[in-house]
Nucleic acid binder design. Structure first.
Length: 295
DNA sequence: GGTAGACCTGGACGC
DNA sequence: GCGTCCAGGTCTACC
């Protein structure tokens, strides 16, 4: 089955897919040029399908591996719209970016959308698995969770969906620690899954919350394993850009851009982008660091 | 409020 | 091949 979804212009699928490394984390997969994104997705009904997404006129075309009901197709449409931020209007950001040479390319390249998972739960787990480890470590941990605990595609059991909160909550810490090699992060992931399953934590409502960003940030910081970096990362995925996800890489970039390579603290990274106000995180994210990133 | 140390793993390095 | 060191955010205890 095929679905066509419109996007608020300007839009570029490859710009979203390459916005950060998420598209390389299972159960996402991307073509080398970023022009095709695929994903194994478990629907509410329990059916597991493959979604293959390509750019189309004014939006995207989604090929679904199975025959679905109207209700299931509507679910797929909602999920893809959220994943790719198809309905996001970034014209105010582009207006501000036109005044800055280091952001001059963003509008023409339709940059600004940040790829995200259909469920915030998955993004919180993945963000926890990016902390205090290398990127290859993150890939390995996510792959372990998906391959061992997610539901398989009916026609290719080697490919699986991201495990649901219930599936992870059913595990014990030791299993999670050893099977996924999550190390000390295992109790954080288990506690998160248990909180979601019990209803103590309703993550998905945060996606449409109109609470002030600081309040949203406080909620995220209450999750064990989510600190200031992770909270800023997750806020950006929620379309709130008032904080910068300051990690060692961000400090390195800002250090070389404005401090002659001298070590900088988080406060210097934040203050470097203070003038961007509500677009602070996006300005950092899409700043032209290309000449530094080659170091 | 700021800081030091522990947490866990994999990679780099020296032997 | 083995042992040691280091990098990567968050949490906790302490000042």
């Amino acid at each position: 089955m095929t679905l066509t979804l419109p996007a608020f212009p300007p839009f570029s699928l490859s710009a979203v897919v390459t916005s950060h490394g998420w598209a390389r984390l299972s159960p996402f997969a991307m073509s080398e040029d970023g022009r095709q994104l695929s994903r194994v997705e478990r629907l509410h009904s329990g059916q597991v399908v493959e979604l293959v997404i390509q750019e189309a006129d004014h939006g995207v075309k989604v090929e679904v591996s199975d025959q679905l009901s109207d209700r299931e197709m509507a679910e797929v449409a909602d999920k893809v719209t959220w994943m790719l931020g198809l309905d996001q209007d970034l014209s105010a950001f582009y207006a501000a970016a036109r005044q800055e040479s280091k952001l001059a390319q963003v509008e023409a390249r339709a940059q600004g959308r940040i790829i995200r998972s259909p469920m915030l739960f998955e993004d919180v787990v993945k963000t926890i698995l990016t902390t205090n480890t290398s990127w290859t470590g993150t890939i390995r941990m996510v792959e372990a969770l998906v391959s061992q605990f997610g539901d398989p595609l009916s026609f290719d059991r080697s490919r699986r969906a991201f495990p649901t909160p219930s599936q992870l909550a059913a595990l014990d810490v030791q299993r999670l620690r050893l099977a996924g090699r999550l190390g000390y992060r295992a109790p954080y992931v288990l506690e998160l899954a248990l909180a979601v399953v019990s209803g103590d934590l309703d993550l998905e409502t945060l996606k449409t919350s109109d609470e002030p960003t600081d309040q949203l940030r406080s909620r995220l910081l209450q999750i064990n394993g989510v600190g200031v970096y992770s909270a800023a990362n997750l806020l950006a995925m929620l379309g709130r850009y008032e904080y910068i996800p300051v990690d060692s890489w961000a400090r390195k970039l800002v250090s070389h851009e404005w401090h002659s390579g001298e070590p900088v603290r988080s406060v210097e990274v934040e203050s470097a982008f203070e003038r961007w106000g509500k677009w602070k995180g996006l300005a950092y994210w899409f700043w032209d660091w290309s000449y530094l990133a080659q170091d």
